[in-house]
Design a binder for these strands. Structure first.
Ligand SMILES: NC(=O)c1ccc[n+]([C@@H]2O[C@H](COP(=O)([O-])OP(=O)(O)OC[C@H]3O[C@@H](n4cnc5c(N)ncnc54)[C@H](O)[C@@H]3O)[C@@H](O)[C@H]2O)c1
Ligand SMILES: NC(=O)c1ccc[n+]([C@@H]2O[C@H](COP(=O)([O-])OP(=O)(O)OC[C@H]3O[C@@H](n4cnc5c(N)ncnc54)[C@H](O)[C@@H]3O)[C@@H](O)[C@H]2O)c1
Lengths: 210, 210
DNA sequence: CTAGTATTGTGAAGTATTTCACAAGTAAAT
DNA sequence: ATTTACTTGTGAAATACTTCACAATACTAG
């Protein structure tokens, strides 16, 4: 909440990386860590690390370095991870159900608390201890459970059918697994996970090598 | 192969987006498309579209626009998609098997042709018509089948056990689903898919809103 | 043939991001 | 006390990326 200065996307993803490194550093019992140490473990430069941190404050001590445990809480707070987030998964096919069963999200502060589908075989059933709701109930459930983020893992063809429901559900952010380009108001943050685009970027880089 | 000029990562992912839009344009039977039309469908600006394309050549006609079908083949070739790619999946758990059964990769030029695991229940069995090999066979299979890319979907704890095998297997690129930071020579391209980092970026943006 | 409208390709200008480089702070050794 | 070895924080410089703006080209209408 201090400043609404524009922060680069790239700086944010580096902070995520630093956070993991620092958690390892804390676990290893180290009491200080230098920007150089963070840089070499994250594949960037010491100057970049210091600049990234300095966007949010002065967290280190000259001559000494940073306190890993202090920095962990600083970065958690910067990234909004000092609280837990409630997530809904929409579409419980192969990807959706893999996500629901994955404990890695819970471990990092993200609680999957509601599931939605349309299939008559799935609605009403239980998955990993959670009841599957019909997508038409999304507004009510999002409101009741105070859900903020939806992970969208429906077939791309289903997107037009549900985009309005999502828009009006009160959801604040979407992690979109479908290859569709979602049209949502910019009051809703959208992040896309697109495996094919990643493979295409690999293809480009490998092709360039000749 | 024309120029090895450095091309921004961001430009490449936009080209992937343009490609999808152009395929739709072709399917809709349009015979021309303007940079403005591509821009509005992809959420960028007409100048950006033209600049991105001009990094690789002059593909349009002044006053007229571009030929969608011509541009599709141009971009396919730029991205290295004028040929098919052979992919191996390493780790056939929830995520790995979801990927294997997904036809979206095949549809866009990526053939999953080999599977690896260590579990005695999986090695030797069949998945989606493919035999599961033991990871120790990776070098032989990669060589025999001329595989270039591996998708890594093993538990993060297994990464140290297999990183050397991957390094020496002849694989040219890795799509890494694990949260581990892979240490591979830079003759091997690595792309990371990290769901938690995406959620953290969402968390940051939603937190900034207050 | 001319006027009017559309649209590309691209240097130049404008922003954004990364890297440099150094003053300033810390501690240990002597 | 002074020297030496480290290390941060941050303006300034360098690089990278995006946007601007306009000459060049194409077509249609009159
Ligand atoms: N499987 C993969 O490896 C993979 C990889 C990358 C991207 N994706 C994308 O992820 C998405 C899901 O893929 P999948 O393989 O899990 O698909 P899937 O077909 O296995 O599952 C889709 C699920 O969505 C449900 N569904 C259908 N219409 C719905 C609606 N209107 N509302 C709510 N739920 C609905 C279905 O009942 C089903 O349970 C697709 O868009 C796919 O392109 C998949
Ligand atoms: N499940 C998810 O939603 C999800 C989401 C994001 C990232 N991930 C990551 O993807 C990876 C896989 O996740 P998952 O949920 O599919 O795990 P999983 O436990 O379901 O499957 C892992 C598979 O890897 C195999 N394996 C173990 N050691 C191996 C080795 N040395 N060589 C080859 N195969 C080996 C196992 O036999 C198993 O089949 C993990 O690193 C996880 O953090 C998973």
């Amino acid at each position: 909440m201090p400043n609404k200065k524009k922060i680069a996307e790239s700086a944010i993803s580096r902070l995520s990386v630093y956070l993991r490194i620092l958690e390892d550093t804390v676990a290893a019992g180290e009491s200080t860590v230098s920007s150089q140490a963070m840089a070499s473990q994250s594949g960037t430069t010491a100057a970049q690390v210091r600049k990234d941190l300095s966007l949010f404050g002065s967290f280190g001590r000259r001559g000494l370095g940073y306190s890993p445990s202090d920095l962990v809480s600083r970065i958690r707070r910067i990234l909004g991870l000092h609280r837990r987030w409630k997530i809904a998964v929409i579409g419980l096919g192969r990807v959706g159900s893999a996500l629901v069963e994955h404990r890695g999200f819970f471990d990092r502060g993200f609680d999957i608390v509601a599931l939605f589908d349309t299939s008559e075989f799935k609605v009403g059933s239980n998955l990993h201890g959670l009841q599957v709701h019909h997508i038409d109930e999304i507004s009510r459930v999002v409101h009741d459970k105070k859900i903020e983020v939806a992970v969208l893992t429906v077939p791309v063809e289903a997107v037009p059918d549900i985009i309005d429901l999502i828009r009006d559900s009160g959801i604040k952010g979407v992690l979109n697994w479908t290859p569709a380009r979602l049209t949502l108001p910019d009051t809703i943050e959208v992040k896309n996970v697109n495996m094919v685009m990643e493979l295409e970027a690999l293809s480009f880089k490998l092709s360039q090598r000749e």
